[in-house]
Simulated scan of single mutants.
Amino acid sequence: MNKVTDHWLGSFTLNILAYSTLLLPLYLLVAYVKNHPNLVHKFKFLACCIRSCILGAEEVEDTRLKSVEEGTTPISPVEEKPSSSAAIAIKLVWCVIGLQVSYLTWGVIQERIMTREYEGETFTNSQFLVFVNRILALFVAGGLLMFRPQKSPQAPLYQFSFTSISNTLSSWCQYEALKFVSFPTLVLSKTCKSIPVMLMGKIISNKTYPYYEYAFALILSLGVSLFVLESETEGESGARETTFAGVIIIIGYLGFDSFTSNWQSEIYKQYKVSSVQMMYGVNLFSSLLTIISLVQRNVLFSSLYFLISHTEFALHCLILSICSAVGQLFIFYTIQEFGPFIFTIIMTLRQAFSILLSCIIYQHYIGVQGIVGIVVVFGAIGFRMYCNKYINVKN
Results as ranks from 00 to 15, higher is better:
Ser84Thr: 11
Val96Thr: 04
Ser126Arg: 05
Glu69Phe: 12
Cys49Gln: 09
Ile50Gln: 04
Ala89Asp: 00
Ser85Cys: 00
Asp62Ser: 10
Leu104Pro: 01
Cys53Asp: 10
Thr63Met: 11
Phe123Thr: 10
Ile97Cys: 09
Tyr103Asp: 05
Pro82Asp: 11
Thr63Asp: 14
Ala86Gly: 02
Asn38Val: 07
Tyr32Pro: 07
Gly71Val: 04
Ser85Met: 03
Gly71Pro: 06
Leu92Pro: 00
Ala87Gln: 14
Gln127Ile: 15
Gln100Met: 05
Arg64Glu: 14
Glu79Trp: 06
Val132Thr: 06
Val132Asp: 05
His36Ala: 12
Val132Met: 05
Leu23Pro: 01
Leu65Asp: 10
Ser52Ala: 01
His41Gly: 04
Thr105Met: 12
Pro37Val: 13
Ala57Ile: 00
Gln110Glu: 04
Ser126Met: 02
His36Leu: 13
Val93Pro: 00
Val108His: 03
Cys49His: 12
Leu22Pro: 07
Ile54Leu: 09
Gly107Leu: 01
Glu58Met: 08
Leu46Asp: 10
Leu29Ser: 14
Pro77Gly: 15
Val132Gln: 08
Val60Arg: 09
Phe131Gly: 02
Val93Ile: 11
Glu111Leu: 03
Gly71Trp: 11
Trp94Asp: 03
Pro77Thr: 15
Arg64Lys: 14
Ser83Asp: 09
Cys95Ala: 12
Ala87Trp: 10
Ser83Cys: 04
Val60Phe: 06
Glu79Ile: 09
Cys49Ile: 13
Val96Phe: 03
Cys49Pro: 04
Leu129Pro: 08
Glu119Trp: 10
Val40Leu: 13
Ala31Lys: 15
Cys95Leu: 01
Pro25His: 05
Ser52Glu: 04
Glu69Gly: 06
Arg51Ile: 02
Cys48Glu: 12
Glu119Pro: 13
Val96Met: 08
Pro37Asn: 10
Phe131Tyr: 14
Ala57Tyr: 05
Val108Ser: 06
Phe131Trp: 12
Ile113Met: 05
Arg64Asp: 10
Glu61Trp: 11
Cys95Thr: 01
Cys53Ser: 12
Leu104Trp: 01
Lys91His: 13
Glu80Met: 06
Ala47Lys: 14
Leu104Arg: 02
His36Ser: 08
Val130Thr: 07
Met114Trp: 08
Pro77His: 13
Asp62Leu: 09
Glu58His: 12
Ser67Tyr: 15
Thr72Leu: 15
Glu61Val: 15
Gly98Leu: 03
Lys42Gln: 14
Thr63Cys: 10
Thr124Tyr: 00
Phe128Thr: 01
Ser84Val: 02
Ser84Leu: 03
Val108Tyr: 06
Gly120Arg: 07
Asn125Ile: 06
Leu46Lys: 07
Met114Val: 07
Arg51Ser: 10
Thr115His: 13
Ser83Ile: 02
Cys49Trp: 12
Thr122Met: 03
Phe45Ala: 15
Thr115Glu: 07
Tyr118Asn: 00
Ile75Tyr: 11
Val101Leu: 13
Ser52Gly: 00
Pro82His: 14
Thr124Phe: 01
Ser76Pro: 02
Glu69Lys: 14
Asn35Trp: 04
Ile109Trp: 05
Arg112Trp: 07
Ala89Phe: 13
Glu69Ala: 10
Ser84Asn: 07
Glu70Ser: 13
Trp94Phe: 09
Ser126Gly: 09
Tyr27Ala: 02
Glu59Ile: 15
Glu80Asn: 05
Ile97Leu: 14
Phe43Glu: 04
Val68Gln: 09
Ala86Asp: 02
Cys49Thr: 15
Ile75Arg: 12
Ala47Gly: 13
His36Ile: 12
Ala31Thr: 12
Ala31Ile: 15
Val68Pro: 03
Glu58Ala: 11
Val108Phe: 12
